[in-house]
Amino acid sequence: MSPFPAHLLSMDDLGTEEIVEVLEVADSFVEVGRRANPKVPTLRGRTVATLFFEDSTRTRMSFETAAKRMSADVLSFAPGSSSVKKGESLRDTIETIEAIGIDGVIIRHASSGVPARAAGWLDHCSVINAGDGWHQHPTQALLDLYTVRQAFGGGDSGLARFEGMQVVIVGDIRHSRVARSQITAYTALGAEVTLVAPTTLLPPSLEGWPVTSVTQHLDDVLPKADVVSLLRVQSERGSGEFVPTLREYTADYGLTARRATMLQPGAFILHPGPIVRGVEIASEVAELPAALITDQVSNGVAVRMAVLFLLLGQGTLGGAHRG
């Protein structure tokens, strides 16, 4: 098995073997999470920092919970979206992190590429991308895979279900770091991905993207879908520039109660949250047993524990890059 990479910047950093490794390690941490005392000493003595230039309470809490359950020391930096205004460059901020002696830094930034740049400036500290601009959000894609595998029975049999699985991703693909990570993640395990979006919310080019098809007709693809993954539509996108109105968006792309009846039995619905009820998903659809939205959140902690373990766990499967 190839060594786990030094950083997790993009789903492209992980091959199929590494993805499966994350899922399998996460199984043991799901088990830990069920204990009365859900804490293990795995990362005792290691220091992890969250560096969120863009606010995200949900993702930051998930990472910090993961690190604390592994007994790491956790520092939380919230430098705001523009460190330049404070007179400190991004590079200075990143290099300070290393000088403090931090082992792993979890970065979220509104600008694509910041985690990659940070990784280039750091010698001894692993970088985990917690979402950069429109680019990537790899742990979100990994927890989606984990959740789908679990919903299809878990373990090797759940994993085997990805082969030929029909995954439909609906919504604002253009501006979505989640979609970019999901597409790579699902296809790495053998799934076929269909994108459904108004053409204005597709990327300008899909050259080189491993997608099977692209359509503007959600009704055509829902009956064959095994997984429907919805993306949040930001209200400003529906204010006339990308789509005329949110009402029109919902009519064409929303997972309404009517559309939910078109799903085959055993199909599942995912959403990275926070959901905008009544826009991309009807409130009652979000409450269906097929909707895995809360499973995604709870699995997020275990999957992030797995990623931290593989990147920082000294003398174990990961950590091979340092020295």
Partner: peptide, 15 residues
């Protein structure tokens, strides 16, 4: 430049 690279990198492009 808006194209294959900007789409992949998630950087706003200018056509």
């Amino acid at each position: 430049h808006e194209g294959a690279w900007s789409s992949r990198l998630g950087i706003p492009g200018m056509p």
